[in-house]
Amino acid sequence: MAALELSSVRKTYTSGDAEIVALDHATLEVGDDEILALVGPSGSGKTTLLSISGGLLTPSEGTVVVGGQDISTYSAKQLTAFRRDSVGFVFQAVNLVPFLTARENLMIVNDFGSSRSHKDAKARAEKLLDELGLSHRVDNLPGQMSGGERQRVAIGRALMNEPALVLIDEPTSALDTKLGEQVMELIVSEVKSRDTAAVIVTHDQRMTRYADRTVTITDGVLAA
C-alpha cells in the first residue's frame, strides 16, 4: 500500500482577480517506506504540495489518499484528527513551543486526544530524543538549544505519533552544510528504521542523495 497517492491534484489560489495555479494535475505515489525528495525553484508549488498531502490545505480538484484514507473530502475537524494521528510535520522555521522543554514539545501532541497514556508518551519522547542524540537536552527550552538541536526536536515531534507519512519542508535551509547533512542523515535513519514514508522538500541538490527518489516540480507541474 502506498503511503501517499495524489491523483490529478489541482490547487488554485485567487489573489484579486487573478487565478494562480500552484499545482497543476499533480499525480504522485510514494511507497510505504520510501523517502522522496521534492526539488524545484521558489514559487513552484512545493509547499502547496506538502500542505495538501498533510491535510493543511484541501485540493481544488483531484484526490489525496494517505495511508489508505481519502482525505480530499474530509471536514476541517476530520483533517485535524488526521494531522494528529497519521502525518508528522517538520516546518521550515517555527516548530517548537518556546515555553515547553524538548520532552514536553514531543509529549504535547499526545495531549490532543490521543489514546496513549502520559507515562507511555513520556517514555516514547525520551526514547526518540535519545535516538536523536538529545538525551542531555530533554529538559531544555528551545531558547537554550542550537538551531540543529531544535530541528532534531522537531523531527522527534513529527515521529511521536508513529505516522505513516512524514512531511518535511526545507529542513536544512537554516543550517550550515555540515549540520544540514547530519540532520538529513538522522532523518533518513529514523525514517528507515520504522515503517514510515517521507517527503522532503529541499532546494539544495546535494541533499537529494539521501532520498530514494527525486521529483522535480516546475510551475506546479511534476516531473520525475
Binding site: K77, R84, F89, F91, V97, I108, V109, F112, R157, N161
Partner: peptide, 15 residues
C-alpha cells in the same frame, strides 16, 4: 505562530 503550529500538528481549536 506557536498556536498555529499546534493547530497544524493536530491540536483541535477546543484544546
Amino acid at each position: 505562530s506557536t498556536l498555529t503550529v499546534l493547530r497544524a500538528v493536530g491540536a483541535p481549536t477546543s484544546y
